[in-house]
Amino acid sequence: MQTCVIFDVFGTLIQIHEKRNPHLQLLRYGRRQGVSPRTEHLHMFMTRELDWEEAAHALGIRSGYVKLHSLNRLLEEELASMTLYDDAQKAIAMLQEAGVKIGLCSNLASGYGPAVRELLPGLDAYGFSYEIGAMKPNPIIYQSVCRDLGVQPGQQLWGDRVVMIGDSIKCDRDGARVAGIAGFHLNRIGQGDFFDLIEFAECVLNG
C-alpha cells in the first residue's frame, strides 16, 4: 500500500515573521486610483504567474518603477523572514524515512514559490495554485498534487492512502475530503484534529 501525505504550507509548515502583505498594498494603491478591490483580484494573484508590473497592468493600476520596486522590497522582506515551524522538518523526516511520499498543496502567489521550494527541497510534489491555475478548495488543485504523487484520491481499490493536513478547515480538511483525501485540521492551540505535526506523523505511521 502506498501512503502519501499532503501538507499545506503557510500556517502549517512555514511561518512568516515579518508580514508585509505586498499584494494587499498594491490593491490599496489601486483604490486611490479608483480601482476597487474584488475577490477576483485575489484569485488572479493566486492563479497566475505575474510580476509586479504585469499584476498592476492586469488590475488597471498605474504604477511607476519606484512603486513597483517598493512592492518587491516588501515581498523580499517577507521571504527573508520565513522559517519552518519547529516540528515541520522532523515530521517530514519521520514520514520520508518510512517511505511515505510527501506533497505540498498551497494557495500561493508566484513570488513565494521559489522560497518555499528552497525551504522545503526534495519533496515528491509541489502543488502551488499559481502554477496549477486553481485555488483550494477547488478539487482541481488536490487532483493535480495527487497526480504528481502517482495516486488517485478516492480510489480505494488499489489500496493507496492519501492524507492531508493544514490550518484551514475549509481548504485543508473539508476541501480535501470532498476530493477524496483524508483531510485533517491542524490547530496549534489544541482546537483541531491535531495540535502539532509530530503527533500527526505518528498517527499516519501507526495507522
Rank of each mutant, 00 (worst) to 15 (best):
A58V: 05
Y65W: 13
N72W: 10
A56N: 06
M44P: 09
K67R: 15
Y65S: 15
M46C: 09
T47M: 10
A56V: 01
F45P: 01
E77A: 09
L79D: 03
R73D: 14
E53S: 15
R48G: 02
I61E: 00
S70P: 12
V66I: 13
E78R: 02
N72M: 11
M44R: 11
V66Y: 11
W52P: 00
A58W: 04
L59Y: 06
H43G: 12
H43R: 12
A55M: 01
H43A: 14
H57M: 10
L71V: 08
K67W: 14
E53P: 06
A80V: 09
E54I: 06
E77I: 08
L75Q: 04
F45W: 04
E78F: 03
L68N: 04
E53H: 13
S81R: 04
H57D: 12
I61V: 13
L79H: 00
S63V: 12
R48F: 06
E53W: 13
S63H: 03
A58G: 05
S63R: 01
L50H: 07
S70E: 15
F45G: 07
T47P: 04
A56M: 03
S70K: 13
S70H: 13
S81T: 01
F45M: 03
G64H: 03
F45T: 02
R73H: 13
L50Y: 05
Y65L: 15
L74M: 14
E54K: 12
E78H: 01
H57A: 13
A55Y: 00
S63I: 08
S81Y: 00
L59C: 04
N72Y: 11
L71S: 06
N72G: 11
L50M: 12
V66T: 14
H43N: 12
E54D: 10
L68V: 05
L50G: 05
E54S: 13
H69K: 14
E54F: 08
L71A: 02
W52H: 02
E49N: 13
L71D: 00
E49M: 13
L79E: 02
W52C: 02
L75V: 01
S63W: 01
R48S: 10
E78Y: 00
W52N: 08
H69E: 15
L75D: 02
W52D: 00
H57Q: 12
G64P: 03
M46H: 07
G60C: 01
L75G: 01
G60Y: 05
A55N: 00
M46E: 08
A56K: 00
A80D: 09
M46W: 06
